[in-house]
Design a binder for these strands. Structure first.
Lengths: 258, 258
DNA sequence: ACCTGAACACCGTTCAAGT
DNA sequence: ACCTGAACACCGTTCAAGT
């Protein structure tokens, strides 16, 4: 099972740290987890810097040594969320199957992530909002971009493999970036709209578990990524992915009924 | 030229109002416009209820007679934004051309809207965020849903026409809702990611004016909406739409360089 | 019935003093 | 060098008093 936080700061290139620095890094990890818990329990409005201070046992001054502002905490969580997502993408890449099956696995990963960790997903969404962007440090926004780049790099592998295996042909005017962007846009859009599905009827009617797959199929068919959805049962692939590489997560989600 | 606010409250079904009620409705319109201006000038953090009060000349108590909370103001702006967008969609529907050309027009409308009125677009995006949802009145969220339904209703016409004209075949397992959702997801996702394009490289490389069209083409090709993008120059259609029905808006955007 | 603005409570942020 | 928490400023929200 993927656990948010297990990797926080671990994969950063930071040569030889002093004991002090190690302790600070450890505290950083701790604070992010506590912040996430507060948001889970009390919502974004219930999350205050005071609560983060008292729940962690550190003073407010120390909290502000770690984060430039309240919004900075959200961006930091979002960064870590993207790293967790990257791990899941890497696992999706390991799925044994056709190149297009792997993309299905990628989208299963994204969908599971957004349901398994709604708060993290919301932090990512909220980080795209002026309310957060306006007040977060340039340095942290840069980190966020790097985390996004990392995801794009992984996504690139899926596409390059497909081109290598001749399941996909790049139009002379297109680039892999364009394809990644199309995928990203539809995945981000679908999940953002679905997770917020308050009670809009259109979305209500569409809330079946495969609606994301449906959108993905349209996009991949549009790219002419072989085999087309008319010639292969990608619902079955979706289920296979859920039951093999993401079996634990799927079982857990079924158990808590989300 | 589409002007946000010109239609505020005008198309609501509200039978015979007293003079007092008319005045209140008028003030409502006024407040929304002022709120938007403050956000434009000073950002979402610069927007405070105090400023809305003093800029409008009304007391805070009166402001709170109109809006349940600060977040409620954002949702209200978002609602009105969706109504403005609906007008633009209706105009796109009038574009003379193939059924698929009209969908291109729809997406030109959306793209123009998001550039012409970035603040409104951000209000729509921000309204999908827990920060706002948590604190807005149920009644207002309902209004937001109705505004979305209205957009969906318009979008439905584009699809039904295409089915009528046999440019598009509905798969037995699919529904028009599913197609609308796919379109909506890719449009929302593309524009959200593009408008926030801080400096992510993938997005940077892709920031040409037709990247939304590119995604739309993929989606419509995936639906097998005739004629396919390989058989028709939709860039040309996109430009035609810009230069005919949205000529004023396009000229204005070029002038201010956005 | 509607409007007002002083008053309140809460929370983000800072910084002088402490270790 | 890092930590503390009292103090400050600001802002969302309310409500008794006024018209």
């Amino acid at each position: 099972m993927f656990k948010f936080g297990s990797e926080i700061n671990k994969n950063e290139v930071e040569p030889k740290k002093s004991k002090k620095q190690m302790a600070i890094a450890e505290r950083h990890r701790e604070l992010i987890l506590i912040a996430k818990d507060i948001i889970s329990a009390e919502g974004f409005h219930g999350f205050t810097m005071d609560k983060l201070a008292s729940a962690s046992g550190y003073s407010k001054g120390t909290i502000y040594n770690h984060f430039a502002s309240k919004e900075d905490v959200i961006v930091t969580i979002s960064c870590e969320a993207l790293k967790t997502l990257a791990q899941m993408y890497r696992k999706a890449y390991e799925f044994e199957g056709l190149s297009r099956d792997k993309v299905v696995a990628l989208n299963v990963a994204y969908r599971i992530f957004s349901r398994l960790e709604p708060v993290l997903f919301m932090c990512v969404l909220t980080s795209k909002t002026p309310w957060v962007v306006e007040k977060s440090s340039a340095e942290n926004i840069e980190k966020q971009n790097l985390a996004e780049e990392m995801l794009i790099e992984i996504a690139d592998k899926f596409i390059l493999d497909a081109i290598d295996g001749e399941d996909l042909k790049l139009a002379p005017t297109a680039s892999t970036d364009a394809l990644i962007f199309a995928n990203w846009a539809v995945a981000f859009g679908s999940n953002a709209l679905l997770n917020n599905a308050t009670n809009s009827q259109c979305i209500e009617r569409i809330k079946d578990p495969y609606s994301v797959l449906y959108n993905v199929n349209i996009v991949l068919d549009g790219m002419n990524w072989q085999p087309l959805s008319s010639r292969r049962d990608y619902k079955k692939v979706w289920r296979e992915v859920e039951q093999t590489i993401f079996a634990d997560e799927t079982a857990y989600l079924a158990q808590i009924g989300r």
